[in-house]
Design a protein around this nucleic acid. Structure first.
Lengths: 233, 233
DNA sequence: GTGGCCTAGTGGCTGAGCCACTTGACCGGT
DNA sequence: ACCGGTCAAGTGGCTCAGCCACTAGGCCAC
């Protein structure tokens, strides 16, 4: 039958830009954290207007593949610009509960140990992370970096290389759940309050209270609805 | 006119536009197939540039919530602009195989019955749907409306109110799988060929061949990877 | 009616430009 | 040597004005 009259494919320009962008990331060997070329440069080298470049970047942005910083460039979030297939999404969703259970077990113990073993310098590092997170949130950010630093500092203060090693093996997936969690409207401030409670327990050397506070916090994060896109409040 | 322009305080303008758009769809009571206001009008009433409106629309486009037709306006694909939560996606993915199994059972029998019972007028209706689908595809559309009409016509020609009732209960999910299927590049023309085969068997009164052709068609559709976005190209 | 044409309306895309923010280098004072 | 402030370049955010391509619908000639 009419295999003749079909293609009909008007690709929107931004879709072609998307493809070129994906190709560029591969060819240039870019990975997570690397910066993409400036919009003006991309426009020039691809021979399209900045507006079209921007449309493509907006797409990548809502897909969480890229982060555009006003005045600071556009950065890769992962090592690729490919959208994750639904299958893998579903697969990871299944594994997530296990990861979060493990996290609860590990971090609860880490908080307990940190309360007992932390040095004053380590306590100060934890406090600094807390302050950093507070500033981030005050500045409109979601505080993900402060969050990361906080947990890293607590882990260090626990002085258990074995538990730290365990944490490392699930670090990547924790990062994802953290990001998703803090994307929820109003979550950053609540998260900050929970971190503060953990800090105070550790500062007071109250191991039991530190463990309880950490457990509560991790369980809150575990309620994340992974990868559900929520508009930035 | 529009309400007073509030200071838009959010980080990305297109995100605010998205919210306004979602709100507008609700307030104006728009539903699938309805047309959104023109980009120029939206830009004027929201007090932003067309470029920002377009960025928002591009987002809705890649999310499959809206279809922008060059020169013909922008149309709603569903009754809402909200993104479907992952849970429902996963849930429906699980139920989908059952639905498609049911569809195969029902439609195969319907085609068989249609071949035996159809009146000439009903055959004509089926043929008209086929022609409509061919025109849609020739005109650059994916032929989803012609597809719908074809199956509806076959169902009617089978003269089985019970089977028709069953079909109705899974109609909504069939619609979705149909849309997703016809989004695949090159799929519309192959689909048309399969429909033609079904039509010819029904026209010839060959019940067995009609059933076989329909079964083959439904199984093809069943291979759809639901809601995995594939760029039109 | 029917078919062809015309035009207003609409989305697609561009180019130039301004503003806001980030970064890093430079320079002065201590 | 160090700190702190300033400044300019670079970059993303957004706008404006405009042209083009396509669509839809009415109008006219046949």
């Amino acid at each position: 039958m009419s295999e003749a009259l079909r293609p009909m494919v008007k690709s929107r320009l931004y879709e072609q830009v998307l493809e070129r962008l994906r190709a560029h990331v591969v060819e240039a060997g870019l990975s997570a954290g690397d910066r993409l070329p400036a919009e003006r440069d991309l426009a020039a080298s691809l021979g399209v207007s900045r507006a079209s470049i921007k449309q493509a970047i907006v797409v990548l942005e809502v897909q969480g593949l890229v982060e555009a910083r006003h005045g600071g460039g556009t950065y890769l979030v992962r090592d690729t610009l490919d959208v994750e297939p639904v299958e893998q999404l579903v697969e990871r969703r299944k594994r997530l509960p296990e990861v979060l259970e493990a996290r609860e077990a590990l971090e609860t113990k880490l908080a307990e140990l940190a309360a007992e073993r932390r040095t004053d310098a380590e306590l100060e590092t934890i406090r600094a992370a807390l302050d950093f997170m507070r500033d981030e949130i005050g500045g409109g950010d979601n505080g993900v970096e402060g969050d990361r630093r906080f947990h890293a500092a607590v882990t260090a203060a626990a002085h258990s290389s074995l538990l730290a090693e365990f944490m490392k093996t699930i670090a990547e997936q924790i990062t994802e759940s953290r990001t998703e969690s803090l994307r929820q409207p109003g979550r950053p401030s609540r998260s900050l309050a929970q971190h503060t409670a953990i800090y105070e327990a550790i500062a007071a050397g109250d191991a039991k209270k530190a463990a309880a506070a950490m457990r509560k916090h991790v369980r809150t994060v575990a309620k994340v609805r992974l990868l559900t896109w929520v508009p930035e409040d």
